[in-house]
Nucleic acid binder design. Sequence first.
DNA 1: ATAGGGTTAG
Length: 643
Amino acid sequence: MSQTEPRRLSLLNVCKTLTSLKQIHANLVKLGLETDLFIAGKLLHHCAISLSDSLDYACRLFRYTPNPDVFMHNTLIRGLAESDRPENSVLKFIQMRRNSFSSPDSFSFAFILKAAANLRSMRAGIQLHCQALVHGLDTHLFVGTTLISMYGECGSVASARKVFDEMREPNAVAWNAVVTACFRGVDLKGGRKMFDLMPVRNLTSWNVMLAGYTKAGELELARETFLEMPMKDDVSWSTMIVGFAHNGYFEEAFGLFRELQREGMRPNETSLTGVLSACAQAGALEFGKILHGFIEKSGLSWIVSVNNALLDTYSKCGNVHMARLVFEQILKERNIVSWTSMMAGLAMHGHGEEAIELFHEMEEFGIRPDGITFILLLYACSHAGLVEQGCEFFYKMRAMYNIEPSIEHYGCMVDLYGRAGQLQKAYEFVFQMPIPRTAIIWRTLLGACSIHGDVKLAEYVTERLSELDPNNSGDHVLLSNAYAVAGKWKDVASVRRLMTDQRMTKTPGWSIIEVDKIIHTFMAGAKQDKITEEAYKKLKEIILRLRVEGGYVPEIGSVFHDIEEEEKEDSVSVHSEKLAVAFGIARLCNGSTIRIVKNLRVCRDCHAVMKLISQIYKVEIVVRDRSRFHSFKDGYCSCRDYW
DNA sequence: ATAGGGTTAG
């Protein structure tokens, strides 16, 4: 090896993207050094482990190395084990056993067991356990620890504990693994007990507790533990932020992020994506922009995952243009998540065709779609009314892309037919699907019945649902909406009576609007305060003007209510999104867009009102409902009245 | 030990 080699290889440590790695690789080839096993191993390690989304390149590198050694085998097995297709890792392991002169060492087993863990395959795990035994490696500390994790991931806390108990001298890592295994098996008490028994705790032990508690939704316990910790690192902070964000506590996630910065720590990739995900879910555009600025300033904008989260935040906050801009900026480094997120953004905003176009562009880019990409594609089709295209994609995903449809894909198909009013087809589809029908499948069908007023089917579906998921108030609301659309008010009333008799409470709808940096929440039928009163007053005035100038007649069909006409109309006019928009009209200055986030889907009447308001008051209104965006302008909505 | 894209519904 010449003098320059160590220096050239040390370049690898600073190369952060595949593009720069390729340059180094090209240089090595030019010097004829790429067959040197040490150098090839280093290179492989860098793109299989250190860089994300470079596995394909790693596989090619491996293929072009004449006689790869154990290290290279292990490295590729390791990289594949962490990929989205861990089965390839197992294949590589088998290939190594068959074709190679090198026999597996403790590293091989540690990595391949990780693949079994990621596959949640107890069968593969047990077989590998046996093989490790044959090689006398099952009692090896590292292998034993991975065995514990594997059994934990596969859901067998008992096996995990057995391996642990038989360990001669478990170190802190082994202890941590067994605590993690307990939490995976939702044995919180057991996890806590092992934690208390630990002879030596390191920072990871504490972080394991945080992760265990937040995943179980025990945020109070997590917070207690967090405060109790003798030391915190960025993983501790990230775990807390992500934990709160995932459990819907957005304000808490924001608060922790600010606190982290106050303590003088640098947010890392994970805490940033976590806090951005909170922004996306909450629709907090302004905070998202601040974070964008921070990312640019602190030189973190090269990180793909951060850009993906940012892109997602912009589109979920209603700003597809900014999402697109971020997407354009990462042109070379885009991965499957970037493409899928952008497709999701377009689909949510009603640009189904563009989402499909983007899919084809992605293919030209040489990126293979995965199962999630197809969920988004089908979502795009169903929400744009593109029934035939949706069917075609559903067929192609298996035939051309070798991706087995999962329950989510079947759900999309039911929705595709149902939303378009093809209830017969939807029903047949549900019957011929080859995997067990879940409550969500039936609920999707029920949703379609409620849109189109198919009472008979709705009744049948409700029966199926009562077997699978009884006492779900939402399902009864859907049934009653189906009756209402069909004008069967007596049946509406009887469903409602049933609900009150059984003390079922309907999830309250809420809408939020930000005015002067303050977020106001409106709820139908909530207790009155000054703000709500103001909103009601303005709404009355608006409705009157809509009647006179826009010929507005309330639509009562899709509303859950009964008996008197006047009362029906009343209940329509108090939907939370109407209050929010009225408040926006009252408080926001002319020319600014009214942005509303709602937790449920928008009803027909509110939709009609929004269109009229946008026309008569000359304002743009953007509503994000539970699933998508509606942009109202000049009396039209971006969803083309299909949602 | 932590992370980014995900079917339905109230």
